[in-house]
Design a binder for these strands. Structure first.
Length: 212
DNA sequence: TCACTGATCGTCT
DNA sequence: GACGATCAGTGAG
């Protein structure tokens, strides 16, 4: 089946997707959030391999009252204070899991929340995990994408840059036009424009008007 | 497409 | 005991 997707501009010398080395990840959380747009997330979970392109990310910074790290390290958020390039996975509202990519220097609690993905490969496994859900809704929303890829709390703290990691970041040198907006679902710091998304993508979460 | 609401449970105060 | 970086279902426009 052919899936609709955003026009992707490849570089003049396209290459095989390459694992992203930690050294190439921006330390700054806003820079990292922009960097992640267009990158590939490869999940090898439960015997299934799924690949999806990151199209929507939110930044959570130091001194940000909306961030889990605002009040300092706790048992739940300790991964946010570790080295960058790791997965911070937590449960929200008792029903959903959310995936973050940690950023900044060790000791600084910052991260980028992955809010939406575009399916690239292994969509059959995603459909199997979310029977009855329309393809467009499989990866639209932080809780939905975790459910479709099989991400749960057992992956909290794993290294997204390590070889043989069940969840890893890859770069196929695609570049997407990036839009900026306010974040979604918050009750604090709602005015800060820290949501970054692939302009024109059909796979974004939130209201359509937010991404126009 | 948007607004509203209930479900659900781990975390933190 | 209150709250929450969500989701699914429903109804209105």
């Amino acid at each position: 089946m052919i899936l609709p997707h955003v026009p992707v501009r490849k570089s003049s010398s396209p290459s095989r997707p390459k694992r992203i080395a930690r050294a190439t990840l921006p330390v700054d959380t806003i820079e990292l959030s922009r960097f992640l747009i267009g990158k590939l997330l490869v999940a090898r979970i439960g015997g299934a391999r799924s690949v999806a392109r990151i199209v929507e990310v939110e930044a959570y910074l130091t001194g940000d009252p909306a961030s889990h790290a605002f009040r300092g390290p706790t048992k739940r958020n300790k991964v946010m204070f570790g080295p960058r390039g790791h997965a911070y996975v937590y449960r929200i509202y008792g029903t959903s899991w959310c995936l973050n990519v940690t950023s900044a220097k060790p000791g600084v609690g910052e991260a980028a929340l992955v809010r939406a993905l575009e399916p690239v490969a292994g969509i059959e496994a995603m459909r199997a995990r979310r029977p009855g859900i329309a393809d467009r809704d499989l990866l639209r929303g932080p809780g939905r994408l975790c459910a479709a890829l099989g991400i749960d709390g057992s992956l909290d703290g794993i290294d997204l840059c390590a070889a043989r990691s069940p969840l890893a970041l890859f770069d196929d040198r695609a570049t997407l036009p990036i839009g900026v907006s306010t974040r979604i679902g918050l009750t604090k710091a709602v005015e800060r424009k820290l949501r970054f998304y692939a302009r024109g993508s059909k796979w974004l979460s939130g209201r359509v008007s937010l991404s126009s």
